[in-house]
Amino acid sequence: MTARTLTPRPNPLPLKYRLMSALVQGPIFAAATAFMGSVALVASLFEKDGRIQHWLARKWARFTIKISISPVKLINGENLRKYPVAVYVANHLSFMDTPVLFSQLPFQFRIVARHDLWKLPFIGGWLRRSGQVPVNVDNPRASIASLSSAVKTLKSGMPLFIFPEGGRTETGHLAPFLNGPAFMAIRAQVPVIPMAIVGTYELLPIHTLQFHPEALVLAVGEPIDTSGYSMKQVDELTARLQNEVARLYYAHTYLKAPAIEAPASATATTPQAESVL
């Protein structure tokens, strides 16, 4: 068996992938999601803490990864287990990121996600009834309230996962990180674990429903302990997280890291930048 390496997604996608997606993978994917969502809805009537629903989500995740014919390789998985409670973050490339995470993280966790996902059929019901944390990114006051509820979830001893970019990338490159994960990790005094998801952009990018099977990677970085951090250092921790996720991501993809990314603060203070203003 030869190991597959990640290559750019062909455009247009060859006919066999389009047919596979439209006739086989897409329908099975939708049916599995509807079925598992319904089972989880029934389960939610009998449990308060969402544990059975998380177990069902893992089953759904493993099945949908199989359907997409894209095996996931976990790199440095031991970093996932170093702290009992932490904030886990990763870049966001695709809808398939969620199955990658649920299939690979070997413990109960809750996710922090955009509040509009709560309106989706089946998925919204599962999000609502299994104790996930909605965050309203459009309304600053509401998003502070939702971050506080995320801190409460952490304080109760439950790990959290969040996509700090706030949405899927359009280009395959990282978008700037939002402050939420650093805020909640420092407030709750738990570490942050940076992770990079690689390959789902080639598998199923934003604005498409056609799968192109790929070899996926979930690379886990060293945990960042927040016990030395104060609330004044939220931006600093966010920058550190972004650098770490970028390092992990570009180490495993064929894409080249954008050159101008790192010294954003340095360029802003140069004379040229001032003359532009």
Partner: peptide, 18 residues
């Protein structure tokens, strides 16, 4: 302690197992 309580901050961990 699994998670530090409100307004408490972690100031030391066991070096090997955190």
């Amino acid at each position: 302690v699994r998670v530090a309580g409100d307004s408490l901050r972690v100031t030391a961990r066991s070096a090997e197992d955190n």
